[in-house]
Nucleic acid binder design. Structure first.
Lengths: 185, 185
DNA sequence: CTCCTATTTCGATTTCTATCTAAATAGATT
DNA sequence: AATCTATTTAGATAGAAATCGAAATAGGAG
């Protein structure tokens, strides 16, 4: 999800995450209202209401039209409905946070424990170990069946203690073994 | 909408109206995560993440399970989906704010300008005038056709300047007129 | 039982946010 | 033009929320 979209969503929740503004939303859902009316209904001073309405307008949640001195605010129902659909769709949820955040961290881990293709050391933290294991798993092609001898050889190119690493890969389900034959999961 | 429900909705928006928590939502949408993982991914200290997760859990947005020392948090997708459906349905929108707030204000206006059934004075504010007009309109039965003479008579029971009030009722569409016959809208 | 690791609780600090009063603006009325 | 009315802008203040470091807690490993 692009930063821009994330920000709009965040602003949307921020705007509605306030008692006065949520009440305003409800009142405007019924009919358009002037600042003064809302002020009386909510028992909040005009400047405050005006302030809230500006935020809602900025977001696109309400529209405004002048009527004499009064400004009548109206809820943009379409906007709200569209928002709710967008927001809660499975896809948008899945991409709420850009993967780059995750990638960045994993890259950092790889950088600090890899010297080119060589593993310098095994991290003590489990979650960092997993990053290394995932990296090592990528050295194996999916759908290919490897003899234990081959597995050891491939691992040995990157890390000395191939036996430990081979077991780790199986234990943590990056690879599977059956009757001495291995394959990537 | 009952107060309780309004509060839950408000809390929902408050919880999601925070950058860190919205990011957490996104990360958990992809997979369950421990506090430490989230802390690193968000670049925010553990106590803060723990604090946010507590709020989300309190709301029912996430569930938690222990795994060794770690606590793995998982998004309750069902909760989120249900929330979005409930929240943005037309009905709930329409009843977001209890009508009692509106009624209370109108009652207040009526109390201050009515002495029993007698109108003491006409408010200068338009929105208050409308309350009086609505009240007066209720003195007429729907579906009944009134002669102008009858209209004047009924108004005069409550307010002296019947001509002004009669015109106001028509102008502001509480009543309609055709060829000297009136009826309530 | 002791140490280590992951998390939570506590308390303090800093940053936001809602709200108000007072003053400025602008449209309508006389 | 002068005045009135509704709203907005500006500036100040109080209250809430986010965040952190330090300390407490609790599970797992040696």
């Amino acid at each position: 999800m692009p930063q821009e979209q994330f920000d709009e969503l965040l602003r949307f929740f921020k705007v509605l995450g306030n008692e006065s503004r949520l009440k305003i939303l409800g009142l405007l859902a019924a009919q358009e209202r002037s600042v003064g009316e809302l002020s009386e209904l909510l028992d909040v001073k005009e400047p405050t209401v005006s302030h809230h309405l500006a935020a809602m307008k900025e977001l696109g949640l309400v529209t405004m039209r002048a009527d004499g001195n009064a400004r009548l605010y109206q809820l943009d129902t379409q906007f709200l409905i569209q928002m709710s659909k967008d927001v809660f769709s499975q896809e948008s949820l899945a991409t709420l946070v850009d993967d780059t955040a995750v990638d960045a961290w994993e890259q950092k881990v790889l950088r600090s424990f890899l010297d080119g293709e060589q593993i310098k050391a095994i991290p003590s933290q489990y979650k960092k170990q997993r990053v290394l294991m995932a990296w090592m798993a990528e050295r194996f092609e999916r759908g290919v069946r490897y003899e234990e001898r081959e597995v050891n050889e491939i691992i040995k190119r990157h890390y000395n203690d191939y036996a430990w690493f081979r077991r780790a890969l199986v234990d943590h389900q990056f690879m599977a073994r059956d009757k001495g034959v291995y394959w990537r999961l």
